[in-house]
């Protein structure tokens, strides 16, 4: 991990710095600690402390009112026999992969589409329209989508019926409910990803394109050999953020389908929430969270390792 984290540093930097005197280094170190202190302090009190507390919770039976009771490995053993958890993790996997893929491909394509010569007004309108959903509350807009996606007398099914498509059971069928949750997430987050990629695209120096053009590169070649390699740091960031975000999605399923029908669109965080704050089984909720934490950490580490193969820093 150590090497992969610092892989962002260019080779020249590390060699140059190796020759520094000890005094300069300690001044730099002091400055470093001072700079991270405010963030670290907040993080320690409101994140790390609670995390440590959860690590103890795993071995407890705790309903948040009565005193906690030590139960050893009971919660961890229960994980093994929890059949619902398997289905819910499958849903979560489908959601995470589906949403991350669609959001990033869509976001990049939109960013490249918008980042082209066009009248300023048009660009402004396109960007505003696509970014608009990001401005809204997930829970509120899920409510709007619920109205739109209703099977009977729903707006979308009515529009589909006009082009001869049979009513789709968007929210009520096991196959469609999870897809609806993914589609809502993509609708809601696409603008966010577009802006991220747009920032990346506009960070690519124009001079590189000019140089390539002088070499006679056509549009496809400009995309392939200039844009795509140079967008990789942004893509890396965007994918990590999407994966982690998607793994923790809650409001979407909570409002749109309530996890139903059955467990068909229940995602892991919704399940954890229900175990913790509906059943008040905090210990087991913490154990479930641990599994999610482990999976997300593993995914991210994998990303960092793989990043060395496809991410280019200048």
């Amino acid at each position: 991990m150590q090497t992969s984290v610092s892989s962002g540093m260019t080779q020249t930097q590390s060699t140059k710095r190796r020759g520094r005197s000890a005094g300069l280094q300690s001044r730099e170190a002091l400055a470093g600690y001072a700079f991270i202190l405010p963030a670290l302090l907040t993080l320690t009190i409101f994140l790390i402390l609670p995390i440590l507390a959860s690590a103890v919770l795993i071995f407890m039976e705790y309903d948040i009112l009565s005193p906690a009771k030590w139960v050893g490995l009971a919660n961890l053993k229960r994980l093994v026999s929890d059949n619902r958890m398997l289905l819910i993790y499958r849903n979560t996997l489908v959601f995470v992969v589906g949403a991350t893929f669609l959001n990033n491909i869509g976001g990049l394509m939109l960013a490249m589409g918008v980042n082209r010569a066009m009248p300023g007004v048009l660009r402004y309108l396109l960007r505003t329209a696509i970014f608009f959903p990001v401005l809204t509350t997930t829970a509120s807009l899920a409510l709007v989508w619920q109205f739109l996606l209703t099977q009977d007398r729903g707006v979308i099914n009515y529009l589909l019926s006009q082009i001869g498509v049979d009513p789709v059971p968007w929210l009520s069928s096991s196959t469609w409910a999870l897809r609806s949750v993914i589609l809502y997430d993509v609708w809601k987050s696409l603008g966010f990803l577009m802006v991220l990629y747009l920032a990346g695209l506009q960070g690519i120096p124009e001079s590189l394109y000019e140089a390539a053009r002088i070499d006679g590169a056509n549009r496809w070649q400009l995309t392939r050999y200039v844009t795509l390699p140079l967008i990789t740091p942004t893509a890396f960031f965007a994918i990590v953020i999407s994966l982690i975000g998607a793994g923790q999605v809650f409001d979407n399923a909570f409002v749109l389908t309530g996890g139903g029908p059955g467990d068909a669109s229940r995602l892991i965080v919704l399940y954890i929430y229900e175990v913790g704050f509906k059943r008040f089984e905090m210990g087991y909720a913490a154990a479930l969270s641990l599994t999610l934490f482990a999976i997300l950490i593993a995914l991210t580490m994998l990303q960092f390792v793989m990043a060395r193969r496809w991410v280019h820093y200048e």
């Binding site: 059971p169 009520s172 069928s173 096991s174 309530g258 996890g259 139903g260 029908p261 059955g262 467990d263 229900e274 509906k278 059943r279």
Partner: peptide, 18 residues
């Protein structure tokens, strides 16, 4: 508060005909 969601979950699979 625990059995109500249990019932609801199973009813949903009746109403959608699955």
């Amino acid at each position: 508060n625990i059995i109500e969601p249990v019932m609801n979950r199973h009813l949903e699979t009746i109403w959608n005909g699955e």
